[in-house]
Computed example of a mutant assay.
Amino acid sequence: MSALIEARGLTIHRPGSAETVLRDVDFRIDPQEIVTVVGPNGSGKSSLVRALLGHMPLAAGHVARRPGLRIGYVPQRVQIDTAMPMTVRRFLSLPRRINDAEARTALERTGVHGIDRRQLAQLSGGQFQRVLLARALLHRPHLLVLDEPTQGLDQPGIVAFYQLIADLRRDTGAAVLMVSHDLLVVMRASDRVVCLNGHVCCEGTPEHVSTAPAYRALFGAEAQGALALYRHHHDHAHDDGCLADDGRGHAARTHHA
């Protein structure tokens, strides 16, 4: 299969009930692609990710993963007992022991070199997110999956984190699947956006999704701001000769309930 992960007709019920969280979702992510899933609270974003990873049962449909696919996962929440001493270095060796060189390289890659002996409880929110990302990179994943990776970060921290993700894609060749509510930054950071609200409302390039009626209906004025930021970045990147067509030819599609 050419895709890293592909889902067809995916339907998910809320655990322990017949309530439908997602219905009839088609999804795929290709090598070296950055895809971001957006949607309001309760729209099924995290459920989609868990189903794609095989952590949630399907009511209908199927998910196919490329044989031998290595996935690095940064979950939405990680509970750390601050009363228990735990250094960054020790955390990186859970559950698989790694050597000092591997730990140092991973931390350097995510911009937090030199904190390996610090306690997790002493880290800022931004540092902790980068440590989680370093841990996800240790197994040289083909796909990075990030579920709301910038929760608790301020706006400069959010922008810096998404720039780091773009750099990692370029340097490692890994594809990136993100769940995010940071519309103003997502439009600048993604190759393709998938908008959920219990089903796929619309999908395509950031510019196409931003102008889709379903997207505007869900996000209103914030959608307009995201489009303005995307166009600003897009135009300036062309002026500097930095942004070119990625050659994937993804077309926007609008889906009806």
Rank of each mutant, 00 (worst) to 15 (best):
M1Y: 08
S2M: 13
A7R: 10
R8Y: 07
R8Q: 10
R8I: 00
H13R: 04
A18N: 07
V25C: 06
F27S: 10
I34Y: 03
N41R: 04
G42V: 02
S43T: 05
G44I: 02
S47C: 05
A51V: 15
L52P: 02
A59T: 05
A60W: 07
H62K: 15
V63K: 10
P67C: 01
Y73D: 14
M84G: 08
R104T: 15
L107V: 00
R109I: 12
T110E: 04
G111Q: 01
V112M: 11
R118W: 02
G125C: 11
R130Y: 03
L133P: 03
R135P: 01
A136S: 09
L143M: 06
E148L: 10
T150F: 08
L153G: 09
L153K: 05
V159Q: 14
A160G: 09
Q163D: 12
Q163E: 11
A166I: 00
T172S: 09
A175Y: 02
V176Q: 11
S180Y: 05
L184V: 15
V186T: 13
M187I: 12
D191L: 00
N197K: 03
G198S: 09
P206L: 08
V209F: 05
S210Q: 14
T211S: 14
A214C: 10
A214L: 09
A217E: 13
G220W: 13
A223Q: 09
A226W: 01
A228H: 09
D235C: 15
H238M: 12
L243Q: 03
